[in-house]
Write a protein that binds this DNA or RNA. Structure first.
Lengths: 190, 190
DNA sequence: CATTCACACTAGCGCTTGCTTGGTTACTCA
DNA sequence: TGAGTAACCAAGCAAGCGCTAGTGTGAATG
């Protein structure tokens, strides 16, 4: 088995795994299916990953790291205006959601299949991401842009955004930025 | 095997199955686990259900039928005021979501595991339910209570509501009605 | 009293699963 | 040129899977 490093080969395999996990679900995806998709034999898979669990963890970690990076970058770029920051977070969220769609669908819907160790590690990453959101929501509340309970508002907004993976069609007429603006418009006091 | 009727025994077994499906996920729940939870041997399970798929379909059908019934009842009770109807739908949604929590979690997150035949049948049920929502949202838009695109608004609202199953704690200080009112307040123009 | 029925049992078939083993190839770099 | 290593393969194991076949039983029905 490889060490836990991030060889380019492993990264490519992780991408393919994410796609299969979305298509079939984690449990129904067999190591033989994964291997075939990767053009290798099933035994060879365990040269790159300790076990099937580790593949799942790699997929989710990849997606969450990207989300965190993009969100931080967006916030840095957009100054300190609360409305601009709110809009930027919504846009960044949808941008990463559809850029790394497979990884995020796995993260959102196969989370429970992680073993406790991996789950604990990835929870911290997720918390770091959500903390960004809470800060932005807080600032928007203090500025009077939106009303309500900070906890509930952030949960509702994240729920509405995450649920888009269930219905949004990237080939349709609406861009992710359209969605973000519509959502922000929907919740802002006028 | 039993006919597809709704014997009380079968209904009770369906309830237990829903609980296990939530705990373990559909794929990881074995017929032996189901049988043990039900206090019978695995072979006996197939007296009540044709196969494992049929158990999943029964769980989801049960939940969706209840949601539809409760929503219709709530709308009938609350008159024709657009705001009251909007609030009633949100309350009804959360009420059924937590009254039949297991069934709904399965319906929301194990949907993909249905075979095509069952999926088509249950999609119609789901569409009937969502049609109620679109009507109510439409009326609220026409009354100027909320702003935005009817399609997007209903998707965002349903997303925010459905996502509550991931974080809402029924033993906490907030009632489902609190959540409904907060959400309605959040999206209403002021 | 005979028959039927719902419900449960035991036993196990045929197949798939995640993962291991022992060995081979292809490439890098001293 | 030869040692080291990353990547791979063929073969297979032990466990577990959904599901079936055939049987037993106590209560209701004729």
């Amino acid at each position: 088995m490889n060490v836990m490093n991030e060889s380019p080969r492993r990264k490519e395999l992780t991408r393919l795994a994410a796609q299969l996990f979305v298509q079939e679900g984690f449990d129904r995806t067999t190591v033989r299916m994964l291997a075939q998709e990767m053009g290798i034999k099933s035994g060879s898979l365990f040269h790159h990953f300790k076990d099937k669990q580790e593949i799942l963890a790699a997929v989710i970690e990849e997606g969450t790291q990207n989300a965190l990076a993009i969100a931080r970058q967006s916030l840095k770029r957009c100054g300190s205006d609360p409305e601009a920051r709110l809009r930027a977070m919504a846009r960044a969220h949808l941008e990463t959601l559809f850029a790394d769609r497979n990884a995020h669908v796995v993260a959102l819907f196969e989370w429970r299949r992680l073993d406790p160790a991996a789950s604990a590690h990835l929870s911290h990453l997720r918390d770091a991401y959500e903390a960004l959101w809470v800060d932005v929501i807080d600032a928007a509340l203090n500025a009077g842009l939106i009303h309500g309970d900070r906890f509930l508002v952030s949960r509702f907004v994240l729920g509405a955004l995450n649920w888009t993976v269930r219905w949004y069609d990237p080939n349709g007429s609406r861009t992710p930025d359209d969605l973000a603006d519509e959502l922000v418009g929907m919740i802002m006091a006028r």
